[in-house]
Design a protein around this nucleic acid. Structure first.
Lengths: 349, 349
DNA sequence: TATTAGCACTCTAACACCCCGAGTGCTAAT
DNA sequence: ATTAGCACTCGGGGTGTTAGAGTGCTAATA
C-alpha cells in the first residue's frame, strides 16, 4: 500500500465501519464487516486493512480485544466521501414535498421573525433528535434601510425599523418630550438620509462618536432623534434560537453523565456558539465540523452541521444541528441544507 | 408518645435530619445527629425517635443499615415548620438591597416583557442553581383595555394592544385593503367599545361565534376590523420562560442519568407545567409542592416553589423554581418570594 | 417512665478473583 | 495478496470476602 494514497477498497471498508457504527454504537469487528458487507474477502483480510486504517489514525480501538470505532479523522473522511459522491438517500422520512409545504408555512410567519425561527429550530431538532440552532438575520450586520416613527399616545412613539430583509423590529419608546407627528417625520427623515445604507453596527459607532464630540451643537430635535434612534437600535444580542436539548439526552451517546454536562455547558455558553456561528456565516452551503476540529473547547466532543441561508446572493443567517460525533451525517446534512433552502426561499418572495 | 401529636423534640430532630440531608446528601444517622446538634441525649434516644419518625412516614431508610433520609411527607412537615416560624436567614448571598436594585432594573425593562421575564428566570436560576420559571401576564386572562391601530406603509398596520397591565404587544399586520388612518380610527373605536372590558379569551370566543353566525351581515370595514383584531390577538401560547437546565445537571441529585431524563421530559412537556402554573396562579403568596404532592406525573420526583405576582390586588402571573425534592427550601422560598415582589412593584409604578 | 450503654445483627460498598467470549495480531500455508 | 489457524488480550459479569456504618433490641440506670 502506498504511503499517501488509500486504495478504493480500503476506503470502502472505512465507509462501512463508520456507517455501521453510526447506525449501531458498538465497536465493529472484522468478522462483522466481512459478513454484513460483501467485499469478497475474509475477516483476516479485513483485519489487515482495519489495522492499516488504525495506523492512519482513521479508526481506533477502545481496548485491545474490541472492534474498531471511527476517530474524528475517520468521520472526516467519511463525510468528505459523502459530500463528493452524489446525494445519499436520506434516512429521515421527509421528502421534497415536505420542504415545499414547509416553505409555505414559514412564508406565513414572515412577520414574526422570532416565531419563525423557533419553529425552524423545533423542526430541525424534532426531526433529527439533535440540537437545532438558528441565527436570524442579524440586525448588526444588516443594512439599515429606514426607520419610521409613528406618534402614539402621550410622549410614546412607535419606532419601526426596516432593513433590507424587511421589518426587523418594532418597539414602543418614550421620547421624553411631547413631539408632534410632523416633528417625528422630520426626525425620521433626518435619520434616514443620515444613516441609510450603513449597517446597524456602524450606526451605533457613529452615534457614540457624535454623542461625545458634538453634543453641544445639536438642536433639540436632533437630540431627540439621536435618543430615539439609540433606543430603537438597542436590541438584545441574545438572538440565537436553540432547541432539542431534551431529545438529545436520550441518545445512547449521552448515556454518560459527563457528556451531558459537556453539552449542557456548551449550550449555556451561548456566546461561544454565537461567535462560531458568526464565523461560519461566511461559508457557502453546508459545512461540517467534527469533534476536535471544533475551535470551541466545549464542543470538542460534538459535531456541528451548518448551512447559511440567503437573500438573493447575500448570506444573511445560518442554521445548524449539533449532535454527537457519532452523528447521522447524511440525514443531518440533508435536513440542514433543505431547511436553509426553505428559509432562503421565504426571503426571496 | 401520642398518636397524632408529635412532641417538640421529635419535631426538632426531624428538622435537624432534613436540614442536614439538604446540606449534604448522605443518609443521616443517629450518632451524627446527637453529636452535631445538641439535643442533650444519646444516639440511642435519637434512634428511638427516628424510628418513630419512620413509623410516621416522615423518614425512610434506603436500606437497613443506613441512616435516614426524609420522605416527601417529611419535607412537607419541614417546610410547614419553616413557614410557620419566622423568616429564616437566607442561604443565598443576596440581601434586600439587591432586590431594591433589581426592581429598578426590571422597571427599566418594562417595555420589553419578554426581555424582562427572561431576565427574571435567568436570575432565579443562576442564584439558586435550580430551574427558573416565569409566566408573564397572560393575555388570555387579562382584560382587554384598548387596541390602537396606526397606519403604516402600504396596506400595513401597526396594531398596539393595551391591557390593564400596560402595553402587551405590538405587531405589524397586513390589512389586505388600503385603509386610511380615519378608517383605522373608526375600526379601533368599534373594537374598543365592543370589546373593552372583556378578557382576551372571551373576545376570541365572541369572534369565532360572530364569524360563523353573522358573516354576511357585516360591512367591509367591520369585516376588516374583525380580521385585524384576530390577527392582533393571535399570540403564541408558548409564553413561558424557563432557564437553568444547564446548572441543574450539576447537582448531585441528578448524578443519575434517569433523573436527568425525567427532568428533561418535564421541561419538554411545557404545556403540562403551564397548566399547573395556571392552576397555581390563584394561590396567594408562596406555594410549595413537594415530589409526590405534584399532580404532574413528570414532576413527581421534583419540587416546585411558586409565587404569584400582582398588580394592585390582582394576581396576574407567577414565577417558580423547580428543583429536586432535596431542595434548599429556605433559599428557594426566599428567592421566589422576593423576585415576585420585585415584579409586583414594577407593575405598580 | 424515659433514657442509656452494650451488643448482636444487617446491609452496602469496595476489592479481589475468576472465567467467558469476542476480537485481535501473528505466522505459516495457499 | 489472501487466508486459516491459533495464541493472546482484555472487558464484563458473576462470586466471595471484608470492613464499616448504622440499626434494633435488651437490660441496666436515673
Amino acid at each position: 500500500m502506498n504511503r499517501k494514497m488509500i486504495d478504493s477498497r480500503t476506503k470502502q471498508i472505512l465507509f462501512a465501519v463508520v456507517q455501521s457504527y453510526i447506525s449501531n454504537p458498538e465497536p465493529v469487528g472484522s468478522r462483522f464487516v466481512s459478513k454484513k458487507y460483501n467485499f469478497g474477502c475474509s475477516p483476516a483480510t479485513i483485519r489487515n486493512v482495519m489495522s492499516d486504517l488504525e495506523d492512519l489514525g482513521l479508526l481506533a480501538q477502545p481496548h485491545t480485544s474490541a472492534g474498531r470505532i471511527p476517530t474524528d479523522k475517520g468521520y472526516r473522511m467519511y463525510v468528505d466521501m459523502l459530500q463528493s459522491s452524489e446525494p445519499q438517500q436520506n434516512d429521515f422520512d421527509v421528502d421534497m414535498d415536505f420542504f415545499a409545504a414547509y416553505t409555505n408555512k414559514l412564508e406565513a410567519m414572515k412577520n414574526d421573525m422570532s416565531g419563525m425561527f423557533s419553529e425552524v429550530t423545533n423542526t430541525l431538532s424534532s426531526m433529527s433528535n439533535y440540537i437545532g440552532l438558528a441565527l436570524p438575520p442579524k440586525p448588526d450586520r444588516t443594512t439599515f434601510n429606514r426607520i419610521d416613527l409613528l406618534k402614539y399616545r402621550g410622549d410614546q412613539i412607535v419606532a419601526i425599523l426596516v432593513t433590507d430583509e424587511g421589518v426587523i423590529k418594532n418597539r414602543i419608546i418614550a421620547s421624553g418630550s411631547n413631539l408632534e407627528q410632523k416633528d417625528l417625520n422630520r426626525i425620521s427623515d433626518y435619520l434616514n438620509t443620515e444613516y441609510g445604507g450603513y449597517t446597524i453596527d456602524e450606526i451605533r459607532d457613529i452615534l457614540i462618536y457624535r454623542i461625545k464630540k458634538e453634543k453641544a451643537l445639536w438642536d433639540n430635535l436632533i437630540s431627540s432623534a439621536i435618543k430615539i434612534c439609540e433606543q430603537a437600535l438597542s436590541f438584545s444580542d441574545e438572538d440565537m434560537f436553540v432547541s432539542g436539548f431534551y431529545d438529545v439526552v436520550n441518545l445512547p451517546d449521552f448515556s454518560d453523565i459527563s457528556r451531558i454536562k459537556d453539552i449542557a455547558r456548551a449550550i449555556k455558553e451561548k456566546h461561544l456558539i454565537l461567535k462560531l456561528m458568526n464565523e461560519l456565516s461566511n461559508t457557502e452551503g453546508v459545512h461540517v465540523m467534527i469533534g476536535s476540529e471544533n475551535p470551541i473547547e466545549e464542543l470538542r466532543k460534538l459535531s456541528i452541521v451548518t448551512s447559511t441561508y440567503k437573500e438573493g446572493d447575500r448570506k444573511i443567517g445560518i442554521v445548524a444541528l449539533i449532535g454527537p460525533t457519532r452523528m447521522n451525517y447524511t440525514g443531518a446534512i440533508y435536513m440542514v441544507e433543505n431547511i436553509a433552502r426553505c428559509i432562503s426561499r421565504t426571503f426571496e418572495r
